[in-house]
Amino acid sequence: DKAVYLLGNSSPPASAQLCYENVTGSCVKTPYSPGPRLILYTVFASGAVLAVFGNLLVMTSILHFKQLHSPTNLLIASLACADFLVGVTVMPFSMVRSVESCWYFGRSFCTFHTCCDVAFCYSSLFHLCFISIDRYIAVTDPLVYPTKFTVSVSGICIGVSWILPLAYSGAVFYTGAYDDGLEELSSALNCVGGCQVVVNQFWLWVDFLLFFTPTCVIIILYSNIFLVARKQAKRIENINSKVEEVSGTHKIRVAKRERKAAKTLGVTVVAFLISWLPYMIDSFIDSFLGFITPSYVYEIFSWFGYCNSALNPFIYALFYPWFRRAMKLIITGQVIKDSSSNVNLFSN
């Protein structure tokens, strides 16, 4: 372990490879053999490419086609932007660190990389929290929903989802407050060629609250959403009179559409939580156990979370016919035609 050599004030074995040869204080390098190395680069690079281009398709679809300019879809587009930025600013550099076991991009960029990593994760979570509120209102009161959750309200939610995570992440990592009391361990882990953040227990408690408070809100709201949806489904099934059926047709159709959207976004929420919970739980517990998690386990949990950014476009493609139609129009270049933004994506 590279931290052990430095904490013990001893030199690594002469046979050990260093991230920077002939540089005092260099981290010890533990490279993979060529076969596994190629496989890892292929897998990680594929995830980054899918995150970038998949979310770019989502953003382009929603922003280009006027029919998709709804409050919910604007939140989805902003969520896709967070995932897109993970694919651009976080995944490529984490890929090199994971495979090479060294950080070759300098200390300043290490801080920036960590800041982006944390900020975009929380931004995604806050977006999902606001989306769950949006879906709760839409399902419980579908006819009044358009007047309650407007584009302006959606814009405020998007602003909060970006400003708070960026402000928090920047304040913690650019002030150096995150490793107060752990300077020796942090210095050991961040030898020349290292970029591993050690966060003290105070800020881990803050992280815990920031992650699990929105998570609890999401779980409670989606639990209520599916209870209400089930009651609505039973109520629709119990409609016997043709007069009642005709008079309630619009309300039934709206309720069905909102329930379907809620289920789809519920899958997105579950995917996010499954992806990031192992990392968050491990980080929290690890701080109380003296940071004993092996580096390869840390990397696995990190990439499990990163891959969520590449997963959401697949979820939309699977459940949203409008996204599949929009994607086809974009890929075939038909969006450059005049009036393409007015195409009806909901036609059969």
Rank of each mutant, 00 (worst) to 15 (best):
3 A>W: 10
8 G>Y: 00
12 P>C: 00
15 S>G: 08
15 S>P: 11
17 Q>I: 04
18 L>R: 04
22 N>Y: 11
24 T>S: 11
25 G>T: 07
26 S>A: 01
29 K>G: 09
29 K>L: 07
29 K>I: 00
38 L>A: 12
42 T>S: 14
45 A>T: 14
45 A>P: 07
52 V>S: 10
55 N>F: 01
62 I>T: 03
63 L>T: 08
66 K>S: 15
68 L>H: 04
73 N>K: 14
80 A>P: 08
82 A>V: 01
84 F>C: 06
85 L>T: 04
87 G>K: 02
88 V>K: 09
88 V>G: 12
93 F>P: 13
93 F>E: 09
98 S>F: 01
104 Y>I: 07
105 F>I: 00
109 F>E: 02
113 H>N: 02
115 C>E: 02
118 V>E: 14
120 F>L: 09
120 F>H: 04
120 F>M: 11
121 C>K: 02
124 S>I: 04
124 S>C: 10
125 L>Y: 06
125 L>A: 02
126 F>A: 06
126 F>K: 05
128 L>I: 10
133 I>Q: 05
144 V>Q: 15
145 Y>F: 14
147 T>R: 13
153 V>R: 12
155 G>V: 02
160 V>F: 02
160 V>R: 05
161 S>G: 08
161 S>C: 07
166 L>D: 12
170 G>I: 09
172 V>Q: 08
176 G>Y: 03
176 G>K: 01
177 A>H: 09
179 D>T: 04
180 D>L: 14
184 E>N: 11
194 G>C: 01
200 N>Y: 00
207 D>C: 14
209 L>F: 14
209 L>D: 12
209 L>S: 13
210 L>N: 11
212 F>A: 05
221 L>N: 10
221 L>G: 10
224 N>W: 02
225 I>C: 02
228 V>S: 06
228 V>R: 01
230 R>P: 05
231 K>S: 15
231 K>R: 10
235 R>S: 15
240 N>K: 14
246 V>Q: 15
254 V>R: 08
255 A>V: 02
259 R>A: 03
260 K>H: 12
260 K>S: 13
263 K>Q: 10
264 T>I: 07
269 V>H: 03
269 V>I: 09
271 A>V: 04
282 D>Y: 03
285 I>V: 03
291 F>A: 03
292 I>H: 08
296 Y>W: 10
297 V>H: 05
299 E>S: 15
300 I>Y: 08
305 G>D: 03
306 Y>T: 07
313 P>V: 00
314 F>C: 10
317 A>D: 05
319 F>H: 13
320 Y>I: 03
321 P>S: 10
322 W>L: 04
326 A>L: 06
327 M>K: 13
328 K>M: 03
329 L>W: 03
334 Q>Y: 15
336 I>A: 12
338 D>M: 05
